[in-house]
């Protein structure tokens, strides 16, 4: 069980199917995550943080 991730794993395990798999679901999920991150950041930085009292200016 140990050797099968080293370079001399059986050739049919690694070749061929690399190009066939397009993780479109992953791209969708991570796109949603990206959108959430950007919106949350804009809210917390520009509205929550910069909108508070006693902003340190010096």
């Amino acid at each position: 069980m140990g050797r099968n991730e080293t370079a001399h794993a059986p050739a049919d395990d690694v070749s061929g199917d690399t190009e066939e798999f397009d993780p479109i679901g992953t791209l969708t999920l991570i796109g949603i995550y990206f959108t959430i991150l950007v919106l949350s950041w804009v809210y917390i930085y520009y509205i929550e943080f910069l909108g508070r009292d006693l902003v340190v200016v010096g």
Binding site: D53, L54, V55, V56, V57
Partner: peptide, 20 residues
């Protein structure tokens, strides 16, 4: 609840300026 926040370390002086 404000942004006035700093560490206070013995031997050092924390300087922060705010507008009231």
């Amino acid at each position: 609840g404000t942004n006035a926040n700093t560490m206070v370390v013995p031997g050092e002086v924390s300087e922060i300026t705010v507008e009231t």
